[in-house]
């Protein structure tokens, strides 16, 4: 299957007063149509910058893409000019972490949905008496139905602050779906939600991907949320990809020490979580070799000198580590 999104050797730096901060370093990844890919990492891992690079939403004077390319649907997103611009917000759309920041607080939800329909969505079918406005409204109500929002007509007259957190995130999903995209980039879409609402939104994302064939690139720090919905998980550490796990190798067969230590950090009743000592690598002066080596219990001389090259097994499992765990061994916590 040809990839919908293809990123090769992406290196991104932010110019700061203290020199360039290397946020992404040699990132390679692909996303197939209809696939849900989780981008998992802690703060500073570069997952949000990667999502923003695809959307072309990086801060303009500071961000500098040193090398690499991003191709979406065959279009070069970094040097594509008008062609790339026409994809953004149409072929690829965005669901933010906190939807309240992304709505305009002064306009009713219905107005904001209608604007998306008018400027971003493909022209709606002719409505009753050839009325375009009526057709747009029908499409919006259908979409709110699809994101499981009951009494959607009453909802259209409300202002964003009058909606609950779960309702706002559903409306955001509807806005992301209205342009009929082939890919949605969701940046921690459930981080601000309660656990019972999180399950609903995660289930909805899965249904959207399955029923509409929309690919979802889902950034999260929550391994549990990633486990729920992803077909593949990309674990990032300090701007580099540490491990890519297919669904079949999900966690139980993780090979990178960082992935395993992250799993052992999860709190669980009846077990004392271990945690990872030390601080995440600074992007201003990343450690040489493997960026995880200062915190890694397996680190040896080679880890301090050479960056580990990724090795890929047949099932698509990729690990970038000089001393990976054997594929068969099961992690301590399972």
């Amino acid at each position: 299957m040809t990839a919908l999104l293809e990123i090769r050797d992406l290196c991104l730096a932010f110019r700061t007063d203290k020199g360039p901060a290397q946020v992404l370093d040699g990132v390679d990844l692909t996303v197939a149509p209809g696939e849900i890919v989780g981008l998992v990492g802690e703060s500073g891992s570069g997952k949000t910058s990667l999502a923003r690079a695809i959307l072309g939403a990086l801060p303009v004077p500071q961000a500098e893409i040193a090398s690499g390319r991003i191709r979406l649907d065959g279009v070069d997103m970094l040097r594509g000019g008008k062609a790339a611009e026409s994809l953004r917000g149409r072929v690829v759309t965005f669901v933010p972490q906190d939807p309240l920041d992304s709505f305009n607080p002064l306009f009713r939800v219905g107005t904001q949905l209608a604007d998306i329909m008018r400027y971003r969505a493909p022209p709606a079918k002719e409505g009753r008496f050839g009325n375009a406005r009526h057709a747009r409204e029908t499409a919006i109500l259908e979409m709110l139905d699809a994101v499981q929002l009951p009494q959607s007509r009453a909802l259209l007259d409300r202002y964003p602050h009058q909606l609950s957190g779960g309702q706002r995130q559903r409306v955001m999903l509807a806005m992301a779906l209205l342009p009929q995209p082939r890919m949605i980039i969701a940046d921690e879409p459930t981080a601000a939600l309660d656990v019972t609402v999180q399950v609903q939104i995660l289930g909805l994302l899965r249904r959207i991907a399955a029923e509409r064939g929309v690919a979802i690139l889902f950034t999260t720090h929550d391994l549990g949320a990633a486990w729920e919905i992803c077909d593949r998980i990309i674990v990032m550490y300090a701007g580099q990809i540490a491990e890519i796990l297919p669904r079949t190798a999900f966690f139980a067969k993780s090979r990178h020490p960082y992935t395993r230590m992250l799993l052992a950090s999860l709190p669980e009743p009846g077990r004392e979580a271990i945690g990872i000592s030390g601080e995440s690598a600074s992007p201003l002066s990343p450690p040489p070799g493997c960026r995880f080596h200062p915190r890694c219990p397996m680190a040896s001389d080679i880890c301090r000198k050479a960056r580990p090259l990724p090795s890929r097994s047949e099932d698509g499992h990729l690990v970038a580590c000089h001393h990976p765990w054997a594929a068969a061994s099961s992690p301590a916590h399972v």
Partner: peptide, 11 residues
């Protein structure tokens, strides 16, 4: 807090 830091605070 990130999970890895959370675990150290809880410990």
């Amino acid at each position: 807090l990130d999970f890895s830091v959370q675990a150290t605070v809880l410990a």
